[in-house]
Amino acid sequence: MTDLYTLQGITVRYGARTVLAVDKLAIRRGEILSVVGPSGAGKSTLLRLLNFLHPPTSGEIHFDGIPFSADRAATLEMRRRVTTVFQHPVLLRRSVEANVTYGLRLRGQRGDAEALHATLASVGLAELAQQPARTLSGGEAQRVALARALVLRPEALLLDEPTANLDPYNVGLIEQNIARLNQEQQTTIVLVTHNLHQARRLAHRVLFLLDGHPVETAVTQTFFEFPHDPRTGAFVRGDMVY
């Protein structure tokens, strides 16, 4: 089976408003899929579904062949196989290290010190391990958020604009980690980004969401150079008015 996620007939409604309507979407095992689209397009809503944080209003999501159902225990088990890094990380009022090991402790694991250290070092936080997390800068906090996701070795890593508002140094560090994780561990990555250059640098495929609807999904080069849908072309050129 090459698809890690399959979505079918998905809608998410808030009140009378449909904010996401995905007829069909497959996310392949081991790919980096970038999701782009204007604010309010439903990108974060899609990621919450993929992290099983709330159920769709209708439709089916399968993960590794398992349907996402209302069963609480099964949902928790699925949720623990994936994780999300959010645009504005909220860290616990504890040390950097305690934040990074938090997800492991939720699973009743301790995590070995060497792996922890390697993870902290990979995001440039080795020196800050004992520092209170709430004293970190925005870039450092985002790297802690990435590290606390990486130590879980998720089968899918969901990234919701992980580098928005970060300086180039931090953007570079985080992009390196994303690329390395995908190459070395074949982790499936869904990257929501406002930065089209970033999508181009990292993604294998790009999905364009507009008003909750997927307009186009294509291999990265095709997406940027030979977009099928005129709206994709307008968005890519920065001509889209919304």
Binding site: R80, T84, F86, L92, L106, R107
Partner: peptide, 9 residues
């Protein structure tokens, strides 16, 4: 939401 995404029951 963030700690639930990390796998909290």
């Amino acid at each position: 939401l963030q700690i639930q995404a990390l796998g909290a029951s």
